[in-house]
Simulated assay, not measured.
Amino acid sequence: MTDTPLSQAQYDAITDAAAHWCMRLHATDCTAEERQAFKQWLDADPLHAFEYEAMLEIWDVAGDLPRPEAVMPVARLQPTTPWRTFGIAAAVCALALPLAAFSGWSLGWVPNSYQHFEASNTVRQVTLSDGTQVELNLGTELTYSNYKDQRRVSLEKGEAFFKVSHDANHPFIVRAAEGRIRVTGTQFNVWMYEDQVRVNLIEGSVLVSSNNDLPGDGLRLEPSMQARYKHGDFTPQISQTYANDSSLAWRHGKLVLDNLALSEALPLINRYLNTPVMVADSSTGSIRLGGIYNIKELNSLVATLPKVLPVYLTRNKDGNPVLNSMPQQPPKS
């Protein structure tokens, strides 16, 4: 999908295609080739799946409408051909879609704008349809949906820096792992690796919750504060950041490790690796690592760790590199 919002004509074309596939897949003469073509269309863009799901809901609604036999005399019924069936379904979809879309938007169920962004091998800057500016770190993927009562981002993986366009009546919500970050206009960074999330606030204020299912909006952060949470946390852990905090160094292509234990450093490193590095035990995890690294060259860091740390590399049954602490030499007698 393109980064810029679709025109009405482009959006209508996707809606028409979704209606076509909805009718064909419900037809008894739908072929295997058509089903394969549908799958290719569905996988081509996240918005295709979104529109198709919406069309299925409309189809279900149409299925609950009164049957012709219930409202027309039997003598007036004419034989119904497959094309007539498709025509009726198309008419129902054409009539129901604007009403369903309007009702869904009015009730806050359906967005009127959807965008999907990815950054693979380079840091990327994008602008959301509400004017919010976002920087995406390497290997980051997110989606943006604009609803009547809120603006919603789903951070699927990676890390992003947000400069949110202010709108007090239209809160901006980022969903990351099991938690959420709620703002109206501010600057903040969200880092995610597996089920671990870290939020750094630069300007303004945010509310951070570690679980979407919990009531309330979460804990409030002020500038120079950080929130961390992971799977199972009832509330985020809040801490103060230092003036020389290096968590945003990725915006300049760097990863700064300030004498961190390997257990803390490896999640920051693994975010950039195709195959994550493990530690053999807690003793290895307590070994400390520091330095400034180019985020595009972190794959080469793994092989050099035994040269700078008292560790050696093995591989586990899944093929992951594993760091093991070197056995200590017994004291000489």
Rank of each mutant, 00 (worst) to 15 (best):
R288Q: 13
V126S: 10
L201P: 05
T241E: 06
I202V: 15
R152G: 00
W109Y: 09
V322K: 07
K230D: 08
A32V: 04
S106Q: 15
A18L: 11
P171C: 12
V206M: 03
Y242V: 14
P321V: 12
A96H: 02
V126H: 09
T284R: 06
G108H: 03
A280N: 14
P276Y: 09
N137R: 04
M23R: 15
N121R: 10
V311L: 04
L309S: 03
N244R: 11
I295K: 02
N259I: 05
V199H: 07
G204N: 03
R24E: 12
Q78E: 14
T122F: 01
G158Y: 02
L201A: 06
W83L: 13
G216W: 04
V199R: 10
T28E: 14
V322M: 09
H26P: 00
S210D: 07
Y193E: 13
E141P: 01
F161G: 05
G216I: 05
S286Y: 05
A94I: 00
V183W: 02
L257A: 05
T122C: 02
H116V: 09
N211I: 01
E264V: 07
V208Y: 05
I202C: 08
V61F: 15
R180G: 06
V74H: 02
Q36Y: 04
Q133Y: 01
Q115C: 02
L207C: 08
T275G: 01
E141C: 11
L305Q: 06
T15Y: 02
G131D: 05
N212G: 12
Q36H: 12
N121S: 14
A18W: 05
L201Q: 03
G185Q: 07
H252K: 14
L47V: 11
G232I: 03
L301Q: 11
A19R: 02
H26F: 03
L219Q: 13
A101R: 15
V164I: 08
A261E: 14
